[in-house]
């Protein structure tokens, strides 16, 4: 690990100005991903700005939304009464991720910025467009069992890695905005616009500008409680990244689906919100048959590599399973 300068700002504006000084500077919060990357020589920030002392931990309900400070720990968010009662899908997704220890360290802001767990990204001896633009995608012709099946239309992706977060899949399904502080003050980013697809600049995971610091997220109230489920399929029973995950949320009334949300993890460069299926579900009475029809119809757009063709069927099946649980049918 290269030596770095360690900084500890006390205010958000101090933090932002420290970051603006040097474009390679990085914020550190929980550190559960960044330290990992620094140890492997994938990130070498000359300046490390420790934001843990900023007052960004609060979880509160305001008007029509829950606001969660960027430094709120994953475990605190998952256990928070407001989250458990108003956004159970988010709590469920958080608890499906990582381990008790990591959830005690990882923050909401850091979780949003988690980088892919693709083996080629993590091994500096192998090619990776995300780590070293232009070096090629190692996974494309290599071991791609865990890689993406959804891309930006028919464009050839420069990176087939998937976004690893569970929390983000739930946030993608909900109405979430991300509040960031930057040199020009505060701005809000719709969750769907935070992460990028990988076509041109795979080294860029998000649409954040240099120096911008996530300060909180806001999740709008909804009527999904009691009809949501986060389903995670993985190679072992716990403490593993998703092969495929599904955040499903339904608004049910009178035996019909009035509103539906569906987002997928483990299938694309970003959390994958499935708008088309949501529309197809609206107004329908829930049934396994319906879920199978919409899932299989929509998966025609998926594209697999040498080792991940199974993901197409697995994604359909996982959607069916999650929707059934959300709808309360067995």
């Amino acid at each position: 690990m290269k030596p770095f300068q360690y900084l500890r700002p006390k205010t958000v504006s101090e933090a932002v100005s420290m970051a603006l000084d040097n474009p390679e500077a990085q914020y550190i919060a929980g550190g559960t991903n960044l330290i990992d990357l620094m140890k492997r020589g994938i990130a070498s920030p000359p300046k490390l700005i420790d934001i843990n002392h900023l007052p960004l931990k609060k979880i509160e309900h305001r008007y029509d939304r829950i606001r969660i400070g960027a430094l709120a720990l994953n475990s605190d968010v998952a256990q928070h009464k407001l989250v458990k009662t108003r956004q159970p899908l988010l709590a469920e997704a958080l608890l499906a991720g990582a381990s008790g220890q990591i959830r005690n360290m990882a923050t909401v802001g850091g979780n949003l910025l988690q980088r892919t767990r693709c083996s080629y990204f993590y091994d500096v001896a192998l090619p990776c467009n995300k780590r070293k633009p232009g070096s090629g995608c190692g996974a494309e012709g290599g071991i791609n069992r865990t890689h993406a099946i959804f891309f930006n239309g028919s464009e050839v992706p420069s990176c087939i890695a998937v976004h690893p977060s569970d929390m983000c899949v739930a946030l993608a399904a909900l109405d979430t905005s991300v509040v960031v502080a930057g040199p020009a003050g505060e701005r809000r980013i719709l969750f769907k616009d935070l992460h990028r697809l990988s076509t041109k600049e795979p080294e860029m995971d998000t649409t954040l500008n240099p120096g911008e610091l996530i300060t909180s997220i806001e999740v709008l109230d909804n009527a999904f409680t009691g009809h949501s489920h986060y389903l995670k399929v993985r190679d072992r029973a716990s403490y593993a990244f998703a092969l495929v995950s599904v955040a499903a949320a339904l608004q049910m009334d009178g035996g019909k689906i009035w509103d539906a949300r569906l987002a997928l993890g483990g299938v694309a460069h970003k959390p994958w919100r499935y708008w088309a299926i949501e529309l197809m579900l609206r107004g329908q009475p829930p049934s396994e048959k319906l879920f199978r029809e919409v899932a299989e119809h929509e998966l025609q757009s998926a594209r697999a590599g040498e080792h991940n063709a199974y993901k197409i069927k697995l994604t359909a099946n996982a959607m069916i399973a999650a929707l059934k649980i959300a709808a309360g049918i067995s």
Binding site: S119, G142, F241
Partner: peptide
């Protein structure tokens, strides 16, 4: 390409 405990899975609790 599976040279850590996140990619070489051994059983957990």
């Amino acid at each position: 390409v599976t040279t850590d405990f996140a990619s070489y899975h051994i059983p957990v609790h």
